[in-house]
Simulated assay, not measured.
Amino acid sequence: MVETEATNFLRVLLQQDAEHIQTWLRMVWAKQQQVPEKFNWLGLAEVSTSNAQELAWALPYPYDKSICIRIFVNWYNY
């Protein structure tokens, strides 16, 4: 199976922390960053949501878990 540019980019992006992903999204929306053709936006949203849920259960209160949730909300609004 050959990995497409979009799939590879998503895989690498999802290895970054949530703040890096949020910065990348802001740059995309500001048209300062290009997105690979056929980018899997739904995959980004699903993994970000899953990561936010894991953080919500794994980290002690009062940790700021909102960054992963903001990524999903911003994606949805885009």
Rank of each mutant, 00 (worst) to 15 (best):
R70L: 02
V28M: 06
L55A: 02
E5G: 03
Y76R: 12
I69R: 11
N40P: 10
R11E: 04
L44Q: 01
V47N: 07
W24K: 01
Q53S: 08
V47T: 12
P60F: 06
T49Q: 05
E46V: 11
Q15C: 04
L59Y: 09
M1W: 15
W75A: 10
N8G: 11
F9M: 04
A52K: 13
N51Y: 01
W29C: 00
F9N: 07
Q32T: 11
S66Y: 13
I67D: 00
F72C: 11
L25K: 06
E19R: 15
T23A: 02
M1C: 07
Q33L: 15
I67P: 01
W29S: 06
Q53G: 00
N40I: 08
Q34T: 14
F39V: 15
V35M: 14
N8K: 15
W41P: 04
V2S: 12
L42M: 06
N51P: 00
W41C: 03
I67L: 08
Y63V: 10
V73E: 08
S66R: 13
F9I: 12
L44T: 02
Q16A: 03
Q32H: 05
N40F: 08
D64K: 05
N8Q: 15
W41V: 10
M27C: 05
K38H: 14
W75S: 09
C68M: 03
R70A: 03
Y76S: 04
A56P: 00
Q22M: 07
V12L: 13
I69A: 08
K38M: 12
Y63T: 12
E37Y: 14
Y63F: 09
R70G: 00
V12G: 03
E46H: 12
G43P: 13
R26V: 02
L10F: 11
N74L: 04
W24M: 03
T7C: 04
